[in-house]
Design a binder for these strands. Structure first.
Lengths: 341, 341
DNA sequence: CTGTTAGCGCGTTCAA
DNA sequence: TTGAACGCGCTAACAG
């Protein structure tokens, strides 16, 4: 027996049946004004709160979603998580948080766990699993929003077959602006520190870098491309150290994210390189720290809050209208020039 | 009808009753080896996953907890959240995340929401509600861990009556070390920028500051104490600006958290004050950004990961053994001297 | 060792 | 306008 007051306790005290009490409170069916009033008052007085687990079982909807990211402690995600939280909260949803560490097996495990928990939808920033694989794990009907690091640009028919909405960023814009910014200062020897080899967002973003360099008539020097083994400051430092240790080095390094860029900044300092004169550094994301490092990090703004809102909006839309066409949202990115380039 | 395969689908195909299938899979009761083997294989083949909502209703335990903090986007919390996540994940629990914005009404609303969702426990970093109020909202039996910004030092009988475990930090240690560090450099005019007036952790931490100053034989100058209206960089800047605008100013400012301290750093720079020579600044928390600002922030380490582990451990213990004595854990804090003081 | 029955707390039939 | 009966998917209690 439970200490909680249930619907039937309220019904009993109000002298009505549980179903009438239910209808009175939910407004699903007409109930006489006086009965309704009485039920409301008694529910209030008894401090009644519906058991959402039972309701979830009955209605087959839990008003629960899950947000699966690489690592919530990574400074880019909290802002996204906060935005999602606020937006879905307004619809009466709460979110489970899951960390995947960019590990494919963990991603599968967490997805299955969430399916088991009957979440109403999933927002996932995948690092390792292909979208097709994700869809196969969560089942064919689960509302799914892919938080892709960068625009996947899936052709229309592919995304439809995936039955997922996508929210990402248009990295080309920011990267193009960054390349232009460097060229305006006469620097054309541009290197890149990417995320891990094979990481989904990392690969896409680096491809943009290659595209924009080529587009600008610059040559991509494979010797100036290095991979950090994760998206952290320490691995960025190590990657930069390898890169800067080579016989000839670039005049600028662009990075897959700000953490890596800050690692590059530190590696440059430790090698006695002045930033931006000896080496220009450009990050990606504009995490809060970016404007406080020294020199202040020139970076590409990834609008985390807008990304979060877009994810939440897409998911709410999909849950409420399962059959509207699938959408692909790409938020624009932009260079913000500060001290490091 | 659902697309999901349920226990009875598995049972049907295995030629056993649902309860036998249940027992085979959960191991709650002996089932013949061969039956068990068959059920396992079929469950695997059908990709069966138990419906945790139904199980939760039946078992009256959801393997779900909620983590309620001021603002997950605040850089101190993600590390705590990550630690909690990892620790409870090992026990098969997942966590809801809730932001309260330090607003008492929001705190009540979120707590009630979580009670409604039948979470098995709550970890809450309160900003506004008294522990007694929290207990009254979640009901008398809900396992509850108070993530207090600083040690509440509740007397033994109070905490027992609250039926909550507490995890906090022993701020005295770090603050004493900080005061000593400043004195060693001959600075005795020490100011303080606190969090919002009336905020629970803010009040406690400031009291420690007062105590340690007095302890060290220094005078607390009320003119050198200022309140930021929240725990953010911007409000820290504003508070520092007010403080530094006064006719005589302290030689050092200690802060309620690092974000405020970084705001103080910027306010000092904008006023042409050199740090640490004109003004020494000491933060609190040691958030990741702290070591990258310029000058690198001297601060007091708040061991976020250990705090998270301690919260998770306390909650798991309480859930599994409701009757063990209530505990109060205070993790030590320590000064880490960098460039700003 | 296994099957049958019942019920977790709701919301939704159906019948009155 | 209301009540009685049933079932969401699972597991505990009780038989056999």
């Amino acid at each position: 027996m439970s200490l909680e007051v249930g619907l039937k306790d309220v019904a009993l005290r109000a002298g009505v049946s549980p179903s009438t009490a239910s209808n009175a409170l939910s407004g699903a069916r007409y109930v006489s004004a006086e009965t309704r009033q009485r039920v409301f008052e008694i529910a209030e007085a008894m401090n009644y709160r519906p058991n959402l687990v039972a309701r979830g079982l009955r209605r087959q909807e839990t008003r629960t979603i899950s947000l699966l990211v690489n690592d919530i402690a990574n400074p880019y995600y909290p802002a996204v998580a906060r935005a999602i939280h606020d937006r879905i909260g307004a619809h009466g949803y709460v979110s489970f948080i899951g960390n995947t560490d960019g590990d494919p097996e963990t991603e599968v495990r967490v997805l299955e766990e969430m399916r088991s928990r009957s979440v109403d939808g999933v927002i996932m920033g995948t690092m390792a699993l292909s979208p097709e694989r994700i869809r196969s794990v969560v089942g064919p009907t689960m509302p799914l929003v892919l938080l892709t690091g960068e625009s996947l640009e899936s052709p229309e028919h592919e995304i439809r077959q995936l039955r997922a909405d996508e929210v990402g960023t248009d990295d080309s814009i920011g990267i193009r602006e960054a390349v232009e910014h460097l060229r305006n200062q006469g620097v054309t020897d541009i290197g890149y520190v990417s995320g891990p080899v094979g990481s989904i967002p990392g690969t896409g973003r680096m491809q943009r870098f290659r595209d924009e360099l080529t587009e600008a008539g610059l040559r991509v020097n494979e010797n100036w491309i290095e991979f950090a083994s994760s998206y952290t400051l320490e691995t960025g430092y190590d990657a930069a150290d390898r890169l800067l240790g080579r016989s000839n080095r670039p005049a600028a390094i662009m990075c897959a994210n700000d953490l890596i860029a800050i690692g590059v900044l530190e590696a440059a300092r430790d090698r006695g390189l002045a930033v931006p004169t000896d080496l220009a550094v450009i990050g990606f994301d504009d995490i809060p720290t970016a404007k406080h490092v020294s020199p202040r990090l020139t970076t590409i703004i990834n609008p985390a809050t807008l990304v979060g809102y877009a994810c939440a909006d897409a998911l709410m839309r999909r849950i409420e209208h399962p059959d509207v066409p699938f959408e692909h949202t790409a938020l624009p990115t932009h260079l913000i020039a500060r001290g490091s380039a």
